[in-house]
Simulated assay, not measured.
Amino acid sequence: MRPPGPGEDRSLRALGLDEAPRDRPLLYPGAWPAESGLLVGDRLLPLDGPVHEDRVPVLAIGSNASPGQLRHKMAGFGITSPIPMVKARVTGVDIGVSAHVSRLGYVSASPVSAPDTVRELFVIWLDAEQLAVIDVSEGVPLPMGNFDRAWLPARDVRIEADGVVLSGAYAYVNRHGVLHNGTGAPRTHPGQRALLTELLVRSARLRELFGVTPEEFCARARADRRLCERGTRLFAEEKWVTASGLERYVDGSRTEGPGTA
């Protein structure tokens, strides 16, 4: 890691990366860095090297690529250790829409299989303690949690950073499935305001539950577990839900992925 330049302010606030979607749901997925960096507390420092052998790689699809959100997640467990965030070229995965309503007040992103799609995404390299925190935040340990952690192998998902191709990476696959685009194929996430506006226009039943504007949706959903569960069921009842295409990797993670617990 090279040091910051003289007088260079690398705070998240100065970089425009400090706000977290958990506090302002319509910002979801939050601001992503312009380049790779090392998240240390409330600073994002320059980072040397795309691979960190003592950690495991996790493909960030939504707010896990937001330094402000990551900082909040770790601070909730008193964890202050640095997190390398590596910008990568990813082939085989796109950013879909989770078929559940989050108690944080938004409809989150989920990875979907997209063999011909190339995306610039972030890989966050986590130690065992940090990985456990992200697992908890995604509901992995809970029987009724929203996500499973799956190992995506390089034979199916190519992840290249600074000329290095990873052997694979973990991703969080939604247990509820994802929303489709009307033809049965997974749709892509357009950003929170655009997504909620479209969904509310399409469904009178959704408007009855969550109001007629994205602001109302976020305010009503936030911290209301029963309402979020009702909204999640409504997605299925409206027949908006399909598979992500990544479900087959969930069981394989028990044998293929590193750092499993």
Rank of each mutant, 00 (worst) to 15 (best):
P6A: 09
V58L: 14
E229Y: 09
A65Q: 08
F77T: 05
T80Y: 12
E256F: 02
G191I: 08
R248A: 15
W125T: 07
E120F: 07
L195S: 05
I159F: 06
Y172I: 00
P67S: 08
A75Q: 14
D127N: 14
P141N: 01
A88D: 07
E247P: 06
F147N: 10
N64A: 00
E215Y: 11
P57A: 02
R254T: 09
H180S: 12
P4N: 03
G191L: 03
L17T: 09
R230Q: 08
P82A: 10
Q130D: 10
N64I: 02
F217M: 01
D42Q: 13
K87Q: 11
G49K: 10
V101W: 05
E120V: 08
L59A: 02
E53L: 11
L27F: 07
D42G: 13
D23F: 11
L15F: 14
L179D: 06
F122A: 07
N181E: 13
L195W: 02
L70S: 03
G139A: 04
P6S: 14
W125N: 07
G37F: 05
A34R: 15
I124S: 06
V133R: 03
R22E: 11
G211A: 02
I134N: 03
R202L: 11
G78C: 05
Y170F: 03
E247I: 15
G191D: 06
A75R: 15
A31Y: 05
V90A: 07
V241L: 13
P143G: 07
R119Q: 12
S81Y: 06
P29T: 01
A169N: 03
E53F: 10
A223M: 11
P3Y: 11
L126V: 02
P4F: 08
D18H: 14
A185G: 12
P29E: 04
E237K: 15
F235C: 03
M85A: 09
E216I: 01
P115C: 08
P3N: 08
L196Q: 02
R10K: 13
R2H: 13
A132W: 11
H100G: 04
G163Q: 05
L206C: 06
R220T: 00
V173Y: 01
Y28C: 04
L206T: 04
D156N: 12
T213M: 03
T183G: 13
V112A: 06
L39D: 10
A109V: 08
R222E: 03
R24G: 04
V241W: 06
A109L: 05
A261D: 13
P186M: 09
Y249R: 06
R254G: 07
P84I: 13
L195A: 07
R24Q: 12
D127F: 01
P3I: 12
G231S: 01
L38W: 13
I134K: 05
G163L: 02
R103L: 11
G62Y: 02
